[in-house]
């Protein structure tokens, strides 16, 4: 490790202080408070009382919790790899020297710039049965004869959500990967071309391995985001049909709304633990210590 002057350390600490304070107040304290709250039976119309693990035992027997856990896990297992896959393709295309590169990049990144709730409304209008764009276009070009009810079954609502989520967040993956891609020295590719490595060989032997740290970062962010998905579902399906698309955070929200803060906190803690474990796995797999830091 490099040695720093004492003065330098002091100045850097002062510069970091605001971030520390913000993190403390807006992340650290709420997380701790949620942990503590999850050990209480804290219902607004009853007296608050310490119950230790009772909320967690209750979780185990709550089928609604298991269903939403299942949905959340399947959702991120399906959507995140899709986003990474498409993100890589986007990145490769964007990295080429094509005309109007700047304009195309802006277009691709646009979905990411739209607030999630608004893009969810947008998709609501696209999926709408009677005046939605999807049905309108498909009817016009005669692929279907009568309108499709996109949000009818649990499966189709799930697909609709995945499509909307992939549309919105693939640009995010692309922008992170693009940065990673541009950090790869061009010389390696020149060398590879001279050695007569074809496109696929160059991709699998150079691009992918060197892009790995960026991919891991994208995976990390996307996983945390996908696990706590709320806004898109809240607007588009409200957890329906028949509760088939209720994510964990939506499930916790339901209990917050009822005023059962203790139970809602314990669901949030589970959510936190899932994200935490996922992060640790990624960091381990990515061997960040050697490659990035």
């Amino acid at each position: 490790m490099k040695t720093y002057y004492k003065e330098d350390l002091k100045t850097s600490f002062i510069f970091l202080l605001p971030v520390f304070i913000l993190t403390l107040f807006f992340i650290f304290i709420p997380v701790i408070a949620t942990f503590i709250n999850s050990f209480f039976k804290d219902i607004i119309f009853l007296n608050k009382r310490f119950v230790l693990f009772q909320n967690y035992f209750y979780l185990l027997s709550d089928s609604g919790f298991w269903n939403s856990l299942k949905f959340t896990i399947i959702f991120f297992i399906v959507s995140v790899p899709l986003e990474i896959f498409l993100g890589i393709i986007f990145t490769l295309v964007l990295n080429y020297e094509i005309p109007y590169k700047g304009f195309i990049r802006v277009c691709v990144l646009l979905p990411w710039a739209i607030p999630a709730a608004i893009s969810a409304r947008l998709w609501e209008l696209i999926y709408n049965y009677s005046y939605g764009l999807a049905n309108f276009l498909l009817l016009k070009i005669r692929i279907i004869n009568e309108p499709i009810n996109w949000l009818e079954t649990g499966f189709s609502a799930f697909v609709a959500l995945v499509i909307a989520d992939v549309w919105k967040t693939t640009p995010f993956v692309a922008i992170i990967l693009l940065a990673g891609l541009q950090a790869i020295p061009k010389e390696i590719y020149y060398q590879a071309v001279i050695d007569r490595a074809n496109f696929l060989q160059r991709f699998f032997k150079i691009t992918l391995p060197l892009l790995k740290p960026a991919i891991i970062i994208a995976l990390l962010f996307r996983t945390i985001d996908a696990v706590r998905i709320f806004d898109l579902i809240y607007v588009l399906t409200k957890g329906g049909p028949g509760g088939a698309t209720t994510s964990l955070s939506l499930y916790a929200y339901k209990y917050y709304i009822t005023g059962d803060f203790g139970y809602a906190s314990s669901i949030s803690v589970i959510l936190f633990i899932i994200s935490f474990i996922a992060s640790i796995i990624y960091l381990r797999v990515g061997k960040f210590r050697q490659e990035v830091l």
Binding site: F45, G64, E152, T153, G239, G240, P241, G242, G243, K254, Y255, I257, T258, G259, D260
Partner: peptide, 23 residues
């Protein structure tokens, strides 16, 4: 009832599932 939101939410889920012909 003070916990009406939960009752409503559960009823919504099952009644809606029945309207969807799943139950």
């Amino acid at each position: 009832l003070p916990y009406y939101p939960l009752i409503s939410e559960t009823m919504q889920r099952y009644i809606n599932a029945s309207l969807a012909n799943k139950l």
